[in-house]
Nucleic acid binder design. Structure first.
Length: 235
DNA sequence: GCGACAG
DNA sequence: ATCTTGTCGC
């Protein structure tokens, strides 16, 4: 039964936004915001997607990497690419990016203890951003790390690295994530639990992965790899 | 109707 | 995300 649900969810690129919304509401009920990843955290994954052109029939590229948190060395890497005609619609990004991400993940040999995903976790209109969608689909711990805000409001944020303020639901005022200053005087990151991680752990893990740059190392590495792949493959 | 809007 | 040059600031 669960296999049927998954196979249904993995091939939804041509459905209507109405169906997409239904699937998100189903996925939403399965998201867990609790620490269910290994306490001896050591391998952190990074995921990023890039496109060869704007508009319809573009080619989508993805890179998934696994880094050793002790040295930040890359212990595994996998890339994938495919034609994609799924447009970007705010609130439905996962239906555009999940297919090519899954293809790359299939070829990975070392699985990380937790994944950092370029996009939102539960800081989403229906609490299922790309990170949460992937987490539930694969039943793995994930954290959403967005470079800009999708939803939510927040107070003023300090300028120093490590400063953070809660990101609140526009209506209910429930906390749906954090606005985090990952480096001094840089634009903040919008961090939110994806799946199987708590609000507190999510922000601590992301900050721990932000060493020299604004973006956490696993996502930077994934971004570098997907760019390299894209420039190497004919499009 | 108007504005907002991850990547 | 992508299209693009130089330029301001820590």
């Amino acid at each position: 039964m669960r296999f049927e649900e998954e196979s249904k969810i993995k091939d939804v690129s041509k459905l209507s936004t109405k169906k997409w919304r239904d699937l998100q509401n189903y996925l939403r009920s399965r998201v867990v915001v609790e620490d269910l990843f290994v306490s001896s955290l050591r391998y952190v994954g990074g995921i990023d997607v890039s496109y060869s052109q704007v508009g319809k029939n573009a080619k989508a590229f993805s890179a998934v990497v696994v880094l050793d948190i002790l040295t930040w060395s890359m212990v595994d890497l996998s890339v994938a690419w495919m034609e994609s005609s799924v447009p970007y619609i705010p609130g439905f990004l996962s239906f555009r990016e999940v297919p090519v991400i899954l293809e790359a993940m299939d070829k990975l040999t070392v699985l990380p203890d937790i994944w950092l995903v370029d996009g939102a976790g539960i800081a989403h209109p229906r609490r299922v951003g790309l990170a949460s969608h992937l987490g539930v689909l694969l039943d793995v711990p994930t954290i959403g790390v967005a470079k800009s805000r999708l939803v939510g409001t927040h107070g003023e944020l300090g300028e120093e690295r490590g400063s953070r303020v809660p990101l609140l639901d526009d209506g209910t005022q429930e906390q749906i994530g954090w606005v985090l200053r990952s480096r001094n005087a840089v634009k903040p990151l919008y961090v939110s639990p994806g799946h199987k991680v708590s609000m507190e752990s999510a922000v601590k893990i992301v900050l721990a992965c932000c060493t020299r740059y604004r973006l956490p190392e696993p996502i930077r590495t994934a971004h570098n790899m997907v760019t390299q792949c894209k420039n190497k493959i004919p499009s």
